[in-house]
Amino acid sequence: MKLIEIKEILEAEVVSGEYDPEIEIEIGCSSDLMSEILAFGKPGSILLTSLMNIQVINTANVADIKAVCFVMGKIPDENIINLAKKNDIIVFITKFTTFESCGRLYKNGLKSCSYLNFEK
């Protein structure tokens, strides 16, 4: 699924500056515990979370997660956005909850981390 499609499905806004709308994201994962994301997140995926601090960006960075979506209309502060920009991580904000966001993306065909675990 293209970033631009994700943006439309989540009626989201990109707050990390310029990005390539054609970038493909295949996998979605969601948790508010970063160790879970470190353990199960897949490179190139999108992380949906209601947690908001710079450790979310650090987690995405070390785990090679391409995009982060903050939910429920929360707006990240400058430190978070700057760190994301510096590390080429795309940051979305959506007014939807984690539940609604995951549901919409799954319905539109985004795969999940666990789906891939089972395939192995």
Binding site: C29, S30, M72, T97, F99, C102, K107, S112, Y115
Partner: peptide
Amino acid sequence: TELSTFEIVGKLYELGIHGNKMSSA
């Protein structure tokens, strides 16, 4: 469930269960 949050939410969504509407601040 053995599934991840993302996937079980996706399946619940397909059963017609949606997220709460947030009164955006």
